[in-house]
């Protein structure tokens, strides 16, 4: 692993601490360091050693929580809500539009690695349904026009 990365990991751990209860905040920061929003295996192995935790303890946390990924994703992660309220507010139309705007299918990443398109469970924006999140920011009351604008603004 490159040196810069190991120093960065060490810095994060020094900031939050080595106790097990620091693991989730540490992993969040470390995933953020990666351009493609994931935690490579060599990173979690190194982290386990550095925090003096079992590899399995680190790995089970990464695989349990939706926020963490073990595989590379796009720079921008689009999460379209697929829970009941958005379902009755025609989120299937929104997904179709997104798929055609990005020329990918739900679950995939664009070839230029700019966007990943994922389903998400409800994130509490049901009053402005249908809704999606891009990199954590919520967009609601989606329609054809707003969707196009939002995607364009992330292309730049």
């Amino acid at each position: 692993m490159d040196e810069l990365l190991t120093t960065n990991i060490q810095d994060v751990v020094e900031k939050y601490g080595k106790d097990r209860e620091c693991l989730i905040p540490v992993l969040k920061k470390i995933q953020k360091l990666n351009k493609y929003n994931y935690i490579p295996q060599e990173v979690s192995q190194y982290l386990a050693k550095y925090m003096q935790l079992k590899e399995s303890e680190v790995y089970e946390v990464i695989s349990f929580y939706a926020e963490f990924s073990e595989t590379p994703r796009g720079e921008n992660i689009i999460k379209v809500c697929d829970s009941t309220v958005c379902r009755v507010n025609n989120n299937t139309e929104i997904v179709k539009l997104l798929e055609s705007l990005l020329s990918i299918k739900m679950g995939d990443t664009t070839r230029d690695k700019k966007f990943s398109l994922e389903y998400s469970p409800c994130f509490g924006a049901c009053d402005i349904s249908p809704a999606m999140r891009i990199n954590g920011k919520t967009y609601g009351n989606l329609d054809k026009k707003s969707l196009k604008e939002i995607i364009e603004s992330h292309r730049r």
């Binding site: 829970s83 009941t84 409800c122």
Partner: peptide
Amino acid sequence: DEGEPGTFKDR
């Protein structure tokens, strides 16, 4: 943690 779909009162 308010994760129940349809719920946003805590928010």
